[in-house]
Design a binder for these strands. Structure first.
Lengths: 236, 236
DNA sequence: ACCTGAACACCGTTCAAGT
DNA sequence: ACCTGAACACCGTTCAAGT
């Protein structure tokens, strides 16, 4: 019999900002935003709540750091080959974030919340930079760089939020409810809307039922890219 | 001397869901999300915290109802004349939401949070319906209605979130800091980024400094609309 | 320098008791 | 049916005290 059934937490490494943030991400992933408390975090790190404050100023910074850590890995696209077109690279960055909101359903909310803080953390520049480089590679004229990159980023953030919604939604219905079942529920709900107030939404309820989220997401990216090419064609 | 300096709160009208939600929106607008507590709300309504629970199940429903109330008025576009093109109508809906996030900086966060709940409230269908009708009027083929409307909605939600960020950001710097000053701060921060990691962001820092948010927002809308027209041309 | 953990000032929510 | 307000079970954060 071991002295205690409490896990020794890796031989009591010293606390560090990095370990704290890592544990916070794990907690967010497993028990959600409401489950991330200083007490739970302290227990997981085998320490007291007060100790965390030596490394992190408070909960706001903790959430910022967790978001930043996840976004940083999501947005880093390893160069799979320089033969990739800028379009491919943009899709890769976009899917990186899109998939991250699936693994970390709390991410979308955090992104929205943190964009409303000053000063912007490193999150926005990270995403913006990854997209912007490819916009430049696309041959978009320089005076349209900001507009084109912003539009891409905004679409991606909005759509990723929606995706997190679908993931969380399916989970909320029950542990074994898959995406298709959830979309079916939403679609049925839409069909039940008032015909006078919601004729259009009712009409597309079927398309909502059958759609594939990633495919739909990429279709939106294609749309924005087509708009960029149409309004800001390469060259002088 | 009046018997008490406490304001009589309109002769003690009976509590109602509507009055509660109205007071919640006021509280959110004036003291922000952290300021919306059941105790503060009860005081404003001249009642006890428990009374609110007779009309509203809890804080989640309160926030949902507040968001829905604001979105409903924001998204309702009065028909300024049937001569308006679908593009104009889309711009009107989009600006309605965009401006709402300026008046109600808490809105963007709430939209993101509530999209991640099941079942979707009436918020998503409301926005989706307003946009979708115009997409249909644009002559987009039926099998592309869902894709086109979703892309528009996602862009708008993402960009509105960013706008709320700028509004809240300027406020956070101080009560008399205007938008231009805030953008200047951000722009300067971007110029200070690592040249190796952020060459693109540094290069567009100037464009960020001078941009007009609404104009930029509409440029993004134009981009998505151009993409829709390019990839899903009207007709068969 | 770094950690401990009790204590403080709050929350959302419940519920017996009133009218 | 609707409201009251004390009480409960939590929070984030602080801080004297330890090592």
């Amino acid at each position: 019999m071991t002295p205690r059934s409490r896990r020794p937490e890796r031989r009591q490494e010293p606390l560090s900002r990095e370990r704290i943030v890592g544990a916070a991400v794990e907690l967010l992933d497993t028990v959600g935003e409401r489950g991330l408390t200083f007490r739970a975090l302290a227990e997981r790190l085998a320490t007291g709540p007060g100790a965390i404050y030596w490394h992190i100023t408070g909960k706001a910074e903790l959430l910022t750091a967790a978001t930043d850590a996840v976004v940083a890995t999501a947005v880093t696209v390893e160069p799979t080959g320089s033969t990739d077109s800028p379009q491919d690279a943009i899709r890769a960055v976009a899917l990186g974030l899109f998939d991250a909101t699936e693994t970390h359903p709390w991410l979308a909310t955090q992104l929205a919340t943190q964009l409303s803080r000053t000063p912007w953390g490193s999150v926005t520049p990270r995403i913006f930079e990854s997209l912007g480089r490819q916009v430049r590679a696309l041959g978009v004229p320089e005076d349209s760089w900001f507009t084109a990159s912003s539009a891409l980023m905004h679409y991606i953030l909005g759509a990723s939020g929606q995706n997190a919604a679908n993931t969380a939604g399916a989970d909320a219905l029950g542990p074994d409810v898959d995406r298709a079942e959830f979309l079916d529920t939403v679609s049925t709900a839409w069909e039940g809307l008032d015909p006078d107030d919601y004729p259009f939404t009712r009409a597309v309820a079927d398309q909502a039922r059958d759609h594939d989220d990633r495919e739909q997401f990429l279709a939106g990216i294609a749309l924005v890219l087509a708009g960029i090419t149409a309004l800001h064609p390469p060259g002088r």
